[in-house]
Design a binder for these strands. Structure first.
Lengths: 182, 182
DNA sequence: TTGACATACTCACTTTATTGAGTATATAGT
DNA sequence: ACTATATACTCAATAAAGTGAGTATGTCAA
């Protein structure tokens, strides 16, 4: 499974607390690998057992103490191993399409509303991505090395969200046309 | 969860055996909701317990007997209920992007090969979709009602696979350019 | 007659994921 | 004083998914 890899991947950026990781899962890695806080802490415990990461308690005065986590040599090797193995395209699982598949069972208006709702969500995500693009990756000279790969993940997000958006428009258009026709 | 919904959705097309459903999961619904045979049979048992579907044993002479499954009123209501509830955009989980995220840990060539591998896979899937499009949805007059919604799911697949393909090209191009430059 | 497929379904084990709390400390606003 | 929010982490129960193998029947072709 890949939650462990996603966690180690964020840790390979630099050490941080479990809490920080869960924050990052709501921001960067989270865009392509969703996980809850509980899942992350559980996985962190496992990874620590396996020696993939080490922890050091940091005393803080103005807030709760934290455990600073850092990836170990074992952890890095484990990650590298995984990255180097050829992988398959991740299987897709999408509720909305299942709904459409059996959409004839409900009123067309319900499907239409659902499509519009999704359009709004994809538009919002796309906007977020575009904002990150203009703020973080504005200067092409800046993102060499690590940044370039990060930029590619962003471009992927932009491309896919855009495809979703285009499709939503298309679908809404088709559904509305029929609504009037009937 | 949605495996139960995906199963009921395929059954809403007409009754068939568990085996048939698992075949469909490798062909149509499977494009947007992957599941193994074992998962399907387990879920079918659960759905039967809940009264969402009923079974009738069909004796066959030239092959093993089968249990013909059909969706019940309860099952249909359950499906309709689920479809009618507004849902969130399905969270994404993609290995490749996690790999890119920590891609600086391995040789660039490994990433490049992985990207090329994915390009091939997405190209193949896109070809499959295009073929279905030309064979099943060739005539616009034919797919009214149910077929129209089905066509939308296909269009979604085509749009997304295309976006993936475009992105793969872009990514490969960028990685190769840097390869030469360094 | 052996071996590869296709149909049809089952069992058992393990890993992951989800849900919903609960604990504790500190900051900042009303 | 009360409330909300942010940091930081833990526990426990259940649901769902993934894994790998196994059973049984019959077709067809080399």
């Amino acid at each position: 499974m890949s939650l462990s890899h996603a966690i180690l991947a964020t840790l390979s950026n630099g050490c941080c607390s479990g809490y920080d990781i869960s924050k990052q899962f709501a921001g960067s890695v989270g865009f392509f690998w969703y996980a809850t806080q509980q899942q992350i802490y559980r996985e962190l415990a496992k990874l620590e057992d396996q020696g993939c990461l080490s922890a050091e308690v940091i005393r803080q005065e103005n807030r709760p103490d934290k455990r600073m986590l850092s990836i170990t040599v074992v952890g890095t090797a484990y990650l590298q191993e995984w990255i180097s193995q050829p992988g398959k395209v991740s299987p897709m699982k999408d509720d909305l399409l299942v709904k459409l598949f059996a959409g004839q069972l409900v009123d067309r208006q319900i499907i239409l509303n659902e499509l519009k709702h999704h359009r709004t969500q994809h538009q919002a995500t796309l906007n977020t991505y575009r904002e990150i693009e203009s703020q973080v990756f504005a200067d092409p000279a800046q993102y060499n090395g690590v940044g370039e790969l990060r930029y590619l993940t962003l471009l992927n997000g932009i491309g896919l969200e855009n495809a979703w958006l285009v499709w939503c428009e298309q679908a809404i258009c088709l559904m509305e046309k029929d609504e009037i026709a009937s």
